[in-house]
Write a protein that binds this DNA or RNA. Structure first.
Lengths: 213, 213
DNA sequence: TGGTGTGAACCGATTCACAGCA
DNA sequence: TGCTGTGAATCGGTTCACACCA
């Protein structure tokens, strides 16, 4: 008889949309006292007003009938939902071209992400600096991050090293991994792993351009 | 009465899986004469066997009952589906740290993507080379790519320039854009645009780590 | 026996439509 | 009147289960 208690949490894709709303709010010139409608957020992020309202519902109904959402309240809610009251420490593993570019990527600082350490296994890179980040030996991962609060790692290593690096990260207590290596790795239950595979993004275009409608 | 003709094409997420299968096949040591089961592909890519079979159905039933899929046939089908018989030309706009790293990214050559030109608007960069790619003035986009076959552009420009760059690309006949700028742009119907936003990937982790279950 | 192909069932996410409130 | 909040309807994708074939 029970229909199964219908979804009781924001869907995965909703997290992405919340981040988009949040980014939009930080970019507009409106005052924090102003109100914004679900329609405006929808237009700005390419979704529907109903979708926006539903997304915003999960963290408490903070809209006001007839007026919209007070920007201050929205920002507060989003900051809390993403835990952005504080800066997040992030480590990088793999200091190749891509890794170096990621260290320099300005978007991170802006978003309260702070790359605090970098690791590589290439003896030629260990001990050097990229921007102001010291590159350490990957074997020192454990000891280096032991007393720092780090939950997130960005990995940009060759595909053959990936699983090994991931294992090491997990063993060190890392809880979320953003992977740029063009291959997959397995992680234990409870560890988040997101893959960004540049070639596969382009492959998607190829498929579509090939006329597979 | 009609239930609406149910899905008659591979879902968007299926394109991603197809690319994954394809990559797995190029990486294994099996002979092209060998057979592979949906189960093996599923295990290798983190999906289910039924899912794999359904995905492979869209481009023709090439499995053989009791044996699996002949690797040669699979590869041929995938090559055709992604139009990988030929090399694809790609241009890059925005030669900052990230742009330079993308030019050097080895995954592209391997996957038959060929970056043939780079553009920037910074006078200090125009005329220089990154690897063996000449950086041209973005204003020469049209004339430079007029006689080349280019359908795909990778964009790694500052957020404020994005929409303008996108407009220019679309006007030049580009049909697919991979965007690394941390913002959105609008494109006309029929143009494909995929956003890769590094901060937002990390934000997703933050949300999950915050215990929003 | 082993493994494909596929309709049907299921399930989660999106959209619709409207009641309710300022 | 304008816009939110939300159940209900819908949609699309995934999984199930099994007929079928070598």
């Amino acid at each position: 008889m029970s229909k199964g208690l219908s979804t009781r949490r924001l869907p995965k894709s909703g997290i992405y949309r919340l981040a988009l709303y949040s980014r939009y709010l930080s970019g507009i010139s409106k005052n924090d006292d102003d109100y914004i409608s679900s329609q405006e957020l929808a237009d700005a992020t390419g979704h529907t007003a109903a979708q926006v309202r539903k997304d915003l519902t999960w963290h408490g109904g903070l809209g006001e009938a007839g007026k919209g959402y007070e920007i201050r309240k929205l920002k507060t809610m989003l900051t809390a939902a993403f835990g952005k009251e504080r800066v997040r420490n992030v480590i990088l593993v793999g200091v190749g071209n891509l890794g170096r570019a990621l260290i320099s990527y300005s978007g991170f600082q802006l978003q309260k992400f702070n790359i605090i350490a970098a690791f590589d296994r290439d003896i030629g890179k260990i001990g050097t600096y990229v921007e102001d980040i010291l590159v350490s030996d990957i074997r020192e991962l454990d000891s280096k991050i032991a007393d720092m609060e780090v939950e997130i790692a960005i990995v940009a290593v060759p595909k053959l090293s990936l699983q090994q690096v991931v294992n090491r990260l997990v063993a060190s207590g890392i809880r979320a991994i953003l992977n740029f290596a063009p291959t997959l790795a397995t992680v234990p239950e409870g560890i988040e792993m997101q893959n960004v595979d540049l070639s596969i993004e382009l492959d998607r275009f190829c498929y579509l351009l090939e006329g597979n409608s």
